[in-house]
């Protein structure tokens, strides 16, 4: 589903990523680890299609609409409510039975009660849960999750565990983390990045 050989990235003269190879198939769960500044985020942005590698080959076999990307930023509008945010993304991703799907996700991540509140009034943990709803909304085939456990409380982390458990058989996952223990039981492969 995702194959990279020797990809690297530089911004002008600054090199942030060098010679990464990876191969991720359906059912795969690749854990990316590395110290700060090793290019984890850059690698994930490249895999999600937000950035282009400046060298190497990258093959992504799924379309743009089948990728779910969770970044450092939740990619939701603070002035809009949770419902409005997910409704917008549901329209853009042409999610069938949008309302039902949005309701189901909000319910599952414990945000149903707060669905009419502006995201700006959410705590960081709630915002991260909403970001997860956004990522899962269109039922992506390839999930690219950058530090997904950030800001989640114990309950939220358990919810995410359950999601990952459910998804990993049929999807491909690329997850970066500072805490590899947490996702050890899902992992099918590891990629350690060295500081650039």
């Amino acid at each position: 589903m995702l194959r990279a050989s020797g990809i690297g990235k530089r911004f002008g003269e600054r090199r942030v990523l060098r010679g990464v190879d990876l191969d991720l198939a359906r059912g795969g769960f690749l854990v990316v680890t590395g110290p700060n500044g090793s290019g984890k985020t850059t690698l994930l942005r490249i895999c999600a299609g937000l950035a282009r590698p400046t060298e190497g080959e990258l093959e992504v076999e799924v379309g743009r609409g089948e990728v779910g990307y969770l970044g450092h930023d939740p990619l939701v509008y603070r002035e809009l409510t949770a419902l409005e945010n997910l409704d917008l993304y549901g329209r853009l991703y042409r999610v069938p039975e949008r309302r039902e799907r949005v309701g189901m996700l909000l319910e599952r991540f414990g945000l149903w009660e707060a669905r009419h509140d502006r995201v700006g009034s959410y705590s960081r943990g709630m915002t991260q849960r909403l970001a997860l709803c956004r990522v899962l909304l269109h039922d992506p085939a390839l999930l690219v999750l950058d530090e997904p456990y950030t800001a989640l409380d114990a309950e939220g982390a358990v919810l995410l565990d359950a999601q990952l458990e459910e998804l990993r058989a049929e999807r491909a996952l690329l997850v970066s983390t500072h805490d590899p223990e947490r996702v050890e039981r899902f992992a099918t492969a590891h990629l350690g990045l060295a500081a650039a």
Partner: peptide, 17 residues
């Protein structure tokens, strides 16, 4: 500016539109 401050442009760019 709102897209930039909240970095939501990435979300729109990722969408299959």
């Amino acid at each position: 500016v709102p897209e930039r401050e909240q970095r939501t442009l990435d979300g729109l760019v990722l969408a299959p539109v």
